[in-house]
Design a protein around this nucleic acid. Structure first.
Length: 853
RNA sequence: GCGAAAGUGGCGGAAUUGGCAGACGCACCAGACUUAGGAUCUGGCGGGUAAAACCGUGGGGGUUCGAGUCCCCCCUUUCGCACCA
């Protein structure tokens, strides 16, 4: 094509240069003008439903490439499912409460609400410019009272059911700011604003949600989540951390200890209790407070241990610090054998797991072993690996400690329990402890109740009132929402801004009418995101959070897509919330999400894109230079979506070049009627057949990937191959020798295949092909297996596994014939060099391996 | 320390079940068209060789007619968990 311009219909002149800006702005304007374009049909729809959801973003100011990737994956899927005829729900919203808005307010003197809403407006326009097919009529912003009033409503329900409660708990406190810090604001033990100032721990009354109530079910139902990545399921299992064991009481040895006291330990290995040669307490164990009261020396030592443990936790290397401890001078009595064992305080015992106290069995626990070695505590073997082995001589401990939990294990030195296996012993000894009232079977979880109080402004006010007469009183439902005041002074003044507003704080008690004080804590933003996807089904409801029949139609979510960083907290809280909603009868599903997809990170120059590293690529910049289609298609082409993606600008150019080729081809050949006078002139039936075959193979590959592994990179590569093949026959097309209907069909299918990946270009070319319909309502192309089939198959001929020749035979050639042809091949004969054929292996459709000797 | 994933040309990545390693794209090289081209089109492109042979999927062993793919040992990277009793 020498000329840059070409005459098409009615002599209209069109540039052959692909200009994404012009095309995308044209369609953007049209799509903006039709808000119903991507709207889901009501739940009375006859179509099968499909709910595809991407994790809602925090409105930080601008989209980053991670967002673009996430939404490009979801949008491709949504568009594909639309074309498959589903009633697709594809909504978007904003996780709009949170700390950055307050920081921005302090820094720039902009009210958090204003800052947040203007960010939302900007990011929404970015999303729209990128062409994501969202149903904006369902948009949700969690910072608006229409939304957060339902957080408050849920909170009241939780409170009603005893699942929300108050408890003293530690918070991070910066003495310089005189304020509470979120965990993320603590940088290696110091305040993020005052790098020299150590963060202190303060005890405050805070609100908790009893997630542990559902611990068993949250764990058990992980088994049902077959559409979730195994990695996420494992992470959740570990996070919940269920552990079966026993609580055993050790009485304090009389005279020295506080009267009647006992120490309850948690153990999973009650079978080793005869080997317990000390008790170890966490430094913060309440009993330790009693012990140190009259012992300044011990007091000082314990303080050290507490400090050491705190530091290790902060720096993250708890687990590798050297074990230390101090003997308290007190003893406890092992209830199984009445033996006196010393009580120690040790830095490797955690107060927030189990009971904060353990029985130490150095012979069968590595940590206890290490400790006992260091302090010369007796190491007593009470279990052996096999029934045949002799007990080792007393005190000898050459081998590293082994837990011996197999069936062949054998208890020794354990009184009446000698001779039992580990499993039998656990059962019998637990029962024994229960009978004698000094122990019981128990299950502990690593999962903790969820502390939702934040001493912050920009969040959902907790709808509670503190009355001097009535105590804690919930705000009545009909008085919701408790609106977050806006004329607020966000400066650092040592208390939550809300607590400094008398007009907010001073209320009358809903119960007695007397003067009362409003709760000034706000909710953790994970509350907002725990149920937002239900609200999408009916966001405009004003009298209840959701409409149950509508939710029952849409739920569970068919496909949820987001970053793996939410694998634990967000996804556990969401699962908890769903179970709670089910139990108060407003939804019927047990789990919110059927299939979960976690996409990889966007990397540049070997590191995750971040402002700190200065390797951020701006989506706006990419859209301006290459267009939304190229940017999106590249995000899908550069790597499979579950892997990390290395952003290379040259790659974007490559995709842009590919889309240009598509554009030029269709522009040149859209007007097929003038290109060919029909089949009669087709000179080369082979090339026609080849195009058909390639087309149907491509449809098959792309369709299979949407149904299966989502390797959109190979989908796009397949479409590239198709386009390359079409370029290969362009001379024949130009010469009028290519059948009209084959060409027309190929072009239509090509545009349809491209629609999920490059929606703007697809829409434009669909119109160029003379189509008026909405592409999303256009059926996805079907492949014809007969047309996709190869007519001729090339066999690789190997000699002892090494490639020696190739032969082409018609498809369906019997194996015996293939074998004959292979043995008759000249190159094969030459390489055989007179050797004997031992065996011939024919793999149908692939290769022949001739084994010679 | 424990667990998971990964390691393939100069680069991003293909190779769905053991069957022709390197699809597709980038970069690069050559040619065509051009006053020109950072446009477009055509061809080439793992190493090696004149051409073959031969060597090549982190390293070492093994199973097999045949291994990137399966098994064993080791190395590296990334992620998650980390004194959980």
């Amino acid at each position: 094509m020498e000329t840059e311009k070409i005459i098409v219909n009615q002599g209209e002149q069109r540039e052959l240069r692909y200009d994404p800006r012009q095309i995308e702005e044209k369609w953007h304007a049209r799509w903006q003008a039709d808000p119903t374009l991507y709207a889901a049909e009501p739940h009375s729809s006859k179509r099968k439903k499909y709910y595809v959801l991407e994790m809602l973003p925090y409105p930080s100011g601008a989209l980053h490439m991670g967002h673009v990737r996430n939404y490009s994956i979801g949008d491709a899927l949504a568009r594909y499912m639309w074309m498959q005829g589903y009633n697709v729900l594809h909504p978007m919203g904003w996780d709009a409460f949170g700390l950055p808005a307050e920081n921005a307010a302090i820094k720039n003197k902009v009210p958090p609400k204003q800052w947040t809403l203007s960010n939302i407006a900007h990011m929404k326009s970015q999303m729209q410019r990128l062409g994501f097919a969202y149903d904006w009529s369902r948009e949700v912003a969690t910072c608006l009272p229409e939304y957060y009033r339902w957080n408050q409503w849920f909170f009241l329900k939780l409170y009603e059911k005893g699942l929300a409660y108050r408890k003293k708990s530690k918070v991070n406190w910066c003495p310089e700011c005189a304020t509470v810090l979120a965990n993320e604001q603590v940088v290696s033990g110091c305040c993020w604003r005052h790098e020299e100032t150590k963060v202190e721990q303060r005890e405050l009354e805070q609100w908790f949600v009893r997630t542990t109530q559902y611990a068993e079910e949250l764990l058990a139902d992980i088994e049902k989540l077959e559409g979730w990545p195994e990695k996420v399921r494992t992470m959740q299992r570990n996070w919940i951390g269920r552990s079966e064991g026993a609580l055993v009481d050790f009485a304090l040895d009389g005279i020295d200890g506080p009267a009647g006291s006992k120490i309850t330990v948690f153990t999973t290995r009650i079978d080793t209790i005869f080997g317990a040669t000390s008790i170890q307490l966490a430094p913060e164990h309440p009993l330790v407070t009693d012990f140190i009261a009259n012992d300044p020396h011990l007091h000082a030592k314990v303080e050290e241990l507490v400090e050491e443990q705190r530091r290790a936790k902060e720096s993250g290397d708890i687990g590798s610090i050297e074990k230390h401890g101090v003997f308290t001078g007190h003893y406890a009595v092992n209830p199984f054998n009445q033996e006196k064992v010393p009580i120690w305080v040790a830095n490797y015992i955690l107060m927030d797991y189990g009971t904060g106290a353990i029985m130490s069995v150095p012979a069968h626990d590595e940590r206890d072993y290490e400790f006992a070695q260091k302090y010369g505590i007796e190491i007593r073997v009470v279990i052996l690996p096999r029934r045949t082995e002799e007990p080792p001589a007393a005190g000898q401990k050459e081998e590293p400690v082994l837990p011996y939990t197999d069936k062949e294990s054998l208890l020794i030195n354990s009184g009446e329990f000698n001779g039992l296996s580990n499993q039998e012993a656990i059962e019998k000894m637990t029962a024994f402890a229960e009978q004698h009232g000094f122990g019981k079977k128990t299950v502990t979880f690593r999962l903790k109740d969820w502390g939702i109080s934040r001493q912050r402004y920009w969040g959902t006010p907790i709808p509670m009132v503190h009355c001097a007469q009535c105590g804690v009183v919930p705000v009545p439902e009909d008085q919701l929402p408790v609106v977050l005041p806006e004329n607020v002074d966000i400066t650092l003044q040592g208390s939550s801004p809300l607590a400094r507003m008398p007009e907010f704080v001073n209320v009358s008690c809903p119960k007695c009418g007397g003067p009362a004080r409003r709760e000034t804590d706000t909710m953790d933003t994970f509350v907002d995101s725990s149920w937002y996807f239900y609200r999408y089904t009916n966001p405009q409801l004003t009298d209840r959070p959701l409409d149950t029949p509508t939710v029952n139609y849409w739920f569970p979510i068919d496909q949820y897509i987001g970053g793996v960083e939410h694998a634990i907290l967000h996804l556990i809280y969401s699962r908890f919330w769903t179970k709670f909603m089910r139990d108060i009868g407003i939804v019927k599903n047990d789990e919110p999400v059927v299939r979960l997809f976690t996409q990889g990170m966007v990397i540049k120059d070997g590191a995750k894109m971040s402002k700190n590293k200065g390797n951020v690529v701006s989506p706006d910049d990419m859209v301006a230079r290459f267009g939304a289609d190229s940017t999106r298609a590249y995000a899908l082409f550069a790597a499979p979506p579950d892997r990390d993606l290395d952003w290379q600008e040259a790659g974007v150019e490559g995709v842009h070049r590919f889309l240009s080729r598509v554009y030029r081809f269709v522009m040149r050949n859209a007007d097929v009627a003038g290109k060919s006078s029909g089949n009669a002139l087709a000179a080369d039936a082979g090339s026609v057949r080849a195009i058909q075959r390639k087309l149907h193979q491509t449809i098959r590959r792309v369709t299979d990937d949407f149904q299966g592994r989502w390797h959109f990179n190979t989908c796009i590569a397949a479409i590239m191959e198709l386009v390359n093949a079409l370029y290969g026959v362009e001379d024949e097309i130009a010469a009028g020798r290519f059948p009209t209907e084959v060409l027309a069909d190929a072009q239509r299918s090509l545009v349809l295949l491209l629609a999920p990946f490059a929606p703007y270009l697809a829409a434009e070319l669909w119109e160029v092909l003379g189509e008026k319909s909405n592409l999303l309502r256009q059926p996805w192309p079907q492949y014809d297996p007969a047309l996709a089939k190869e007519d001729e198959i090339e066999y690789a001929i190997q000699l002892n596994g090494k490639l020696r020749s190739r032969i082409a035979v018609p498809a369906e050639t019997p194996e015996s014939t293939v074998q004959e042809r292979a043995l008759a091949d000249e190159k094969v004969k030459a390489s055989m060099d007179g050797k004997q054929v031992v065996k011939v292996i024919v793999i149908p459709g692939k290769l022949v391996n001739i084994v010679v000797k």
